[in-house]
């Protein structure tokens, strides 16, 4: 085997279990002699396993009679999650004045500058999604334990990723998400940012709303302009909790994100 097109087809058939036992034995023998070929098979096997691991169950209602199913439970839990978010927002608005940094942290201004730079660019360019390699490279550039959320449940698509070195030498990751109704959200993750609160804290200014928190040794700034405050609170709470756990959103959170969008008006930035 020398890596031509026919070999690629056979290798794919091999990892899919589509070869006869004689053909599979022949490929296995070739793998033992050819390290590059073995690496290729390993990569394709890893890719196949990852594709299968990427499956997720949608939140759909199964009509047609019979007992209620998990979707009802999921809906109820989503409602509880929404209520919890509203409580958190009320609690935050009440308690935040005691936090010494209630005066907006300096880095928040930098985060808004990054948001503004991306907004100007996205006005002038067609939407585009960063390639997977760009995502990993950007995350690695800023450091370990950086959380980048998948906001597609809220119908927000990752449009841009940038790594920027700030004036004090720290690195910041800017992720810009575009919605389908004019919404733009920025998530800025800054190394260190030790003056930020650990809990989710809301700030408002003329330019828009923002939530900040600290997780995993990084400061997180979530920014939006003209977005329904209730919807933005649900998004902020979801990203905040997920960044603490470093896990993707669970189905209840995805439901809450989807329903908060459906209930909200388009953005008016």
């Amino acid at each position: 085997m020398n890596g031509d097109r026919q070999d690629l087809k056979r290798i794919n058939a091999y990892i899919d279990g589509e070869l006869s036992s004689a053909e599979a034995a022949e490929v296995a023998g070739a793998l033992a002699l050819d390290r590059a070929l073995a690496e290729r098979v390993a990569t394709l096997s890893h890719l196949k396993a990852t594709i299968q691991a990427s499956l997720e169950t949608p939140d759909v209602e199964l009509h047609g009679g019979g007992a209620p199913h998990g979707s009802h439970l999921r809906y109820a839990m989503a409602m509880v999650a929404c209520a919890a978010v509203l409580l958190l927002v009320v609690f935050g608005a009440t308690m935040a004045p005691w936090w010494p940094g209630r005066h907006a942290p300096t880095a928040l201004t930098r985060a808004w500058e990054l948001h503004a730079a991306w907004t100007r660019e996205s006005d002038a360019a067609a939407p585009r999604s960063p390639a997977g390699g760009a995502v990993l490279a950007a995350l690695e550039a800023v450091g370990p334990h950086v959380y980048l959320p998948d906001l597609t449940a809220a119908r927000l698509t990752l449009d841009s990723l940038r790594v920027v070195r700030l004036d004090d030498g720290t690195k910041a990751l800017h992720a810009g998400y575009l919605g389908t109704r004019g919404c733009r959200i920025s998530l800025v993750v800054i190394q260190g940012a030790n003056d930020l609160p650990g809990e989710l804290t809301e700030f408002e200014r003329a330019a828009g709303q923002s939530y900040v928190w600290r997780s995993g040794g990084h400061g997180y700034f979530l920014l939006a302009e003209g977005m329904d405050p209730g919807r933005f609170a649900v998004i902020a709470d979801s990203v905040y909790r997920a960044s603490q756990e470093m896990n993707p959103f669970d189905s209840e959170t995805r439901t809450a994100l989807r329903e908060s969008r459906e209930r909200s008006a388009p953005c008016h930035a």
């Binding site: 097109r5 690629l8 390993a42 594709i51 990427s54 997977g132 995502v135």
Partner: peptide, 25 residues
């Protein structure tokens, strides 16, 4: 049929997130 390219690949690039993004393209 086209000439196949031999590639050496960094498996660390393959994750659920990158696969989902890649599939959309």
């Amino acid at each position: 049929e086209e000439d196949a390219q031999i590639w050496r690949y960094d498996d660390r690039m393959i994750s659920v997130l990158t696969v989902r993004l890649g599939l959309t393209r």
